[in-house]
Design a protein around this nucleic acid. Structure first.
Lengths: 343, 343
DNA sequence: GTGAAAGCGCTAACAT
DNA sequence: ATGTTAGCGCTTTCAC
């Protein structure tokens, strides 16, 4: 009933050679005579042999190192903080199978990233997971990496110049389009509608994502509500408090492209009618959602992204499994009534 | 730098006993003297020993059987069809680690379920994954299962009378509440709003879920729009075509509690203003969503539920990992603009 | 080019 | 109660 699992030994006996020879054939190590090669391959095909991956790992019994190249972050940088949590979780999960992580934290600028990435490559890890920063000047660096043939997982930002093995992240432009569709539902088709796109607590490394989100957002409205007035503001965390007041007059909807929507809480208390869409289930945002100041949060799930990034590389290293080249996370829509199911 | 992984042998040497004794302590098999026990435990604690699970699996090297008790289904029963796909996928994934699935398909009635469940228990599987049907008469059956001490995973329907190890599914009442919140957004607060709750293509086994969804849906509207008129209809697949016409007059919103929303396509073509919320990304629904007949689909993700159900039991059997007692899937909101990210 | 043998860490059967 | 040993399936080294 259960299809018998054949072992190297079984194959060897049937092909009348030794285990060693079968192993050389299976793993294409060469040094096998044409004749033996054929005998073994025939049996292999006939019996549909698949190697026992557990035995293989046990025998290997070496640590596999994944270099993790991500920005330095603190607890205020919630996106990376949660992402790092996911990575740490995956580290615990895979640690018992010999997966080791080495961190290379970079400051959010070109030099620092380049330096850390180089250091990561130099130590010859078995794989690299990184959140890259895209600079023209780094192209040669990326091709250096390829030469070493180290599998690279990209997280957060796909860079097509890199020959990566897998990308984990989201489609930011689509995210903006979705936000627009939701906003349209929320504010209806009143001709007096006026919308604000707010990049709050802006980091340079996020700029490209935020831009993509805004682009998608505006594209949707251009297609469906061509005349609509949409303004954009961009403030660092500190500037928000000083500057937003003026921007908020007559606004009917705000699309905050970062996870810092909660910075607006005081204003939103005073303008309860404004519809607000933001990002990420960080505690402060969740409170605002429950209080009704924020209408919808889009969930980027950085924690799961971190976990998935490590897990795919780990599975690949341990079991040589194929992993999808792109892992685009769904863009989850979170409202009060399904909030609980995402926590 | 890397914390060394200690082996049984290491512990044995340090505690000055044999591997066998350490093994007995670690696995609590008894037959160890107080003195040896203590010596070993001290070392164990000091070195923070964790057994090598890969070696353990290799040694065990036996097939672990999971009995799968789910309804008979064909390609028209899309929910179970997709669920079965997820189960099959998990079977492939875990097959190489010695996890074997045995299926017990039941007809959707009490006798058949009882019979299949009994058969499943009789074969003494290492675990059972089942989509139970809840009948008072089956209580004794469930307690039989407990006596055998077989871990049970429940999928789709949680039954508190069963002492299950894990449940994979959704909170149907919350799902209804969410649908209501979305519907409220879609139709606005026009006093002429009239809503229809439609249970289409009804199966007996689904009745309890559908009821829960409707309950949540109505509860939300009771809280937020007390006077609103909400009707309910319940049709088998065949009845839909004959009967819906009359029900649709003056309706502003329809909430279809099953994955059969697409049955309404002809009507919706004629009534483009009606807002529609349904379930599941089955191809026919997706088409209707793209065409604008359906506004929102709630994604129950049966495929992932199937996969998760098997995977948690498999991980538990292989690696003795703890698994969460309840795995409530998020209730995903799918609209045209984020559809792609769920496919 | 091939085969024999050791050994990864753990478990279970068997001696003592 | 404790120690010893064989062996799970694979890889790798070392003779031949």
């Amino acid at each position: 009933m259960t299809p018998k699992k054949y072992t190297l030994q079984d194959i060897a006996e049937l092909a009348q050679v030794s285990r060693g020879t079968v192993d050389r054939v299976v793993n294409k190590r060469g040094k096998v005579s044409k004749k033996a090669q054929k005998k073994v391959e025939d049996v292999l095909k006939r019996l549909d042999y698949t190697p026992n991956l557990i035995a293989r790992s046990l025998k290997r019994n070496q640590n596999l190192v994944i270099a993790v190249v991500i920005p330095i972050h603190n607890e205020h940088d919630i996106y990376w903080h949660q992402c790092a949590q996911g990575i740490a979780e995956a580290e615990r999960k895979w640690g018992q199978f010999g997966i080791i992580l080495k961190y290379f934290h970079y400051h959010k600028n070109q030099e620092s990233f380049a330096s850390m990435f180089s250091q990561a490559i130099e130590m010859d890890p078995n794989a690299i997971l990184m959140a890259p920063i895209h600079y023209e000047e780094l192209k040669t660096l990326f091709s250096d990496a390829e030469a070493k043939d180290i599998p690279i997982g990209l997280i957060n930002t796909p860079i097509e110049e890199i020959d990566y093995m897998t990308f984990v992240g989201q489609d930011y432009q689509k995210s903006g389009r979705l936000a627009a569709q939701l906003m349209a539902n929320l504010i209806g088709s009143d001709p007096h509608n006026k919308i604000l796109v707010a990049h709050l607590g802006v980091d340079t490394d996020h700029a490209v994502h935020l831009h993509a989100k805004e682009k998608g957002f505006r594209a949707y409205f251009d297609e469906h509500f061509p005349g609509l007035k949409i303004d954009t503001v961009s403030y660092s965390s500190d500037d928000v408090v000083e500057n937003m007041d003026a921007d908020l007059s007559n606004i009917t909807g705000i699309y905050v492209t970062t996870s810092k929507t909660h910075l607006l809480s005081d204003y939103l208390d005073k303008h309860p009618k404004i519809k607000v869409i933001g990002y990420d289930l960080v505690p402060k945002n969740v409170v605002q959602l429950q209080q009704g100041n924020i209408n919808i949060l889009l969930n980027q799930n950085p924690k799961l992204q971190g976990d998935t990034g490590i897990s795919s590389l780990a599975e690949h290293l341990l079991y040589n499994t194929d992993i999808p080249q792109k892992r685009l996370f769904p863009i989850d829509i979170v409202m009060t009534e399904n909030l609980e199911s995402y926590c």
